Simulated assay, not measured.
Amino acid sequence: MGSKTKIVVLHMKEIIYTVLFAVLAIVLILLLIFMFLPHSKDSKTAEEKYMPGIYTSTVTLNNTPLEVEVTVDESHINSIRFSNLDETVTTMYPLIQPTIEDIAEQIYEKQSLDNIEYSSDSPYTSQVIINAIDDAIKKAAAK
């Protein structure tokens, strides 16, 4: 009878190991599913709500104030532009207009200021413009 007990103990160890590995495999599969599923429900509820209108923020370049004008409707950013850009500023800062156009295109596409790629030609100007756009969007945010 002692030999049967040893065989049962060996089989019990194998069953325990099999169950343990099966549980770990299920936990790993569930973890991978939750990590890589798109979070569409969260993005729909966290969608920005704005008060429709035109909001401005000021950027000062070499003692010249520039108005960044952001136009929004209830849920979208529709337009971003400089409202008082003149020839002297564009002559002094030739990359400012292409920079704001590039940033505006990215914002229209993403409807967010997250993960905006800066131009390698003017990273500091891009950051100043994004800060001004962010200020204007904060003014537009519905409370």
Rank of each mutant, 00 (worst) to 15 (best):
N62Q: 09
F82W: 08
T60H: 00
Y55W: 13
L61R: 02
S75F: 07
H76T: 12
D73E: 08
L61M: 13
V72A: 04
T88V: 12
S57C: 12
N63Q: 07
E87M: 01
D73F: 05
T88S: 15
H76K: 14
N78V: 10
V70P: 01
D73G: 12
P65V: 10
V68Y: 04
E74Y: 06
T64S: 14
S75I: 10
I77Q: 08
R81H: 04
N62R: 09
H76D: 14
I77T: 14
I80W: 13
D86Y: 13
D86M: 06
T64M: 11
I80A: 08
E67H: 09
T91R: 14
E67G: 00
T56A: 02
L61D: 04
T56Q: 06
F82P: 07
T60A: 04
N78M: 12
R81E: 10
T71Q: 09
N63V: 04
N62F: 01
E74H: 14
D73P: 07
N62Y: 12
T58N: 13
L85Y: 05
D86N: 15
T58Q: 15
S75R: 10
D73L: 01
I54D: 02
P65F: 03
T88K: 14
N63A: 08
L66F: 07
V72W: 12
E74I: 05
D86K: 08
I54Y: 03
E87C: 00
T64C: 04
L85A: 05
R81N: 05
E67V: 15
P65D: 15
N62E: 07
E67Y: 05
L85E: 02
N63F: 00
V72Q: 00
S57Y: 06
T71Y: 04
T64H: 13
T60P: 00
N63W: 03
V68N: 08
D73A: 03
T64D: 13
F82Y: 14
E67Q: 15
I54G: 09
S83F: 01
E87T: 11
H76R: 15
E74Q: 11
E67F: 04
V68E: 10
N62L: 03
N84W: 13
V59T: 11
L61A: 07
V59R: 01
Y55H: 05
T88Y: 00
I77G: 04
N78F: 07
N63M: 06
F82C: 05
I80E: 11
T60R: 01
I77L: 09
S75W: 06
N63Y: 00
S83M: 03
V89T: 15
N78I: 03
I77E: 03
N78Q: 08
T71K: 08
N78L: 15
V89R: 01
F82E: 11
S83W: 09
V59L: 15
L85D: 10
I54K: 08
T88R: 07
I77R: 05
T58D: 12
L61Y: 05
T64E: 09
V89K: 04
E74S: 12
I80L: 06
T71L: 03
N84L: 11
D73M: 10
T58A: 06
N84Q: 10
T88A: 14
L61S: 04
L66P: 02
V72D: 11
E87S: 10
I54V: 12
T64Y: 14
E67D: 11
N84H: 12
I80F: 11
